[in-house]
């Protein structure tokens, strides 16, 4: 009975600690919402979402449209995704289907090591190497723009995509591969027509989590995206994505002011976006486990 009692007690400790994480998540949401939603007492939701000009410190009439910032986020994240998904998938296919066990043992940790590089270091790499390279390639005076930021953010998201997609492919039972080979398929046909379709929900989950990582990335875009609030017309224009905008302005605003609240509203939006992406990925993984 004594042992049982001790077991019961320790169980409370673990339950409490586990609950803390859920409370944190809910707390972050309510904290963001309570400050951020206050902004909409004075700013119309329509102006906020569809206005193109973000100028909260104008002398004349201020404007609160996040259109240009949102466009910056979209340009950077979609380009990053277009770069990171094919490379991430290729790495995953190599690791799970083609690499020898020894090569896999070496390359998989190496890919995952990329995610432990502080993003500020990736930003430095961008300033030092990528930006001059892209400036030379496109004949620009400087290349602190959406394209440079997208390439670096793609590097940051690569380990997430490659690693989760590799897990998805590796969990496809070997007997699917055997059955396909026994029907006269080549190895590539087997990967393309039997393995990839069987892993598709896990692959999609990996891509969504990579996307969430890309949208939330702040330090890299802060350093290399150029930070202009003008509406971008091409990938080679400087942009200021939503996350970077918060980081730039939050240290200059009066606490509790409308501007402060508006920045929290942007934060709330980013949070909800990544939350939905993570939720979707989770649903897909669960669906795969059930099938």
């Amino acid at each position: 009975m004594f042992r049982l009692y001790r077991f019961e007690k320790s169980r409370y400790v673990f339950t409490a600690l586990a609950t803390v994480t859920v409370v944190c998540l809910a707390g972050i949401f309510f904290f963001l919402a309570s400050v951020g939603l206050g902004a909409f007492r004075q700013i119309s939701l329509r102006e906020f979402l569809f206005g193109l000009v973000w100028n909260p410190t104008a002398y004349g009439s201020v404007s609160w449209g996040i259109g240009a910032l949102l466009m910056g986020t979209v340009l950077v994240s979609v380009t990053a995704l277009v770069v990171a998904v094919p490379i991430g998938l290729a790495v995953a296919i190599y690791l799970s289907e083609l690499a020898s066990p020894r090569a896999r043992e070496f390359i998989k940790p190496a890919v995952e090591m990329i995610s432990s590089i502080p993003s500020v270091v990736l930003g430095l790499l961008g300033l030092l190497f990528f930006a001059p390279l892209i400036a030379r390639l496109f004949g620009l005076t400087n290349a602190l723009n959406a394209l440079t930021a997208a390439l670096l953010v793609a590097i940051a998201a690569l380990p997430t995509i490659a690693s989760i997609c590799d897990d998805a492919l590796s969990s496809v039972p070997a007997r699917y591969r055997e059955a396909s080979l026994a029907l006269g398929a080549s190895q590539w046909e087997t990967i393309r027509k039997a393995v990839l379709p069987a892993a598709k929900s896990g692959l999609l989950a990996g891509i969504l989590l990579g996307f969430a990582r890309i949208i939330g990335e702040t330090m890299i875009v802060l350093m290399v995206a150029g930070n202009s609030v003008a509406f971008p017309r091409s990938l080679l224009d400087p942009v200021r994505p939503l996350a970077a905008n918060i980081a730039i302005e939050i240290k200059e605003v009066v606490i509790g002011s409308l501007h402060w609240q508006a920045l929290f509203a942007i934060g709330l939006m980013l949070f909800m976006l990544t939350f939905i992406l993570n939720l979707l990925a989770d649903v897909l993984v669960r669906k795969k486990l059930k099938a």
């Binding site: 039972p173 007997r175 699917y176 055997e178 059955a179 396909s180 080979l181 026994a182 029907l183 006269g184 039997a194 379709p197 069987a198 099938a291």
Partner: peptide, 16 residues
């Protein structure tokens, strides 16, 4: 393998 086919111990239909 197209001429000499094979069926395995566990039924292995693809998830299709």
């Amino acid at each position: 393998r197209r001429r000499v086919g094979m069926v395995f111990q566990n039924p292995t239909p693809f998830p299709k």
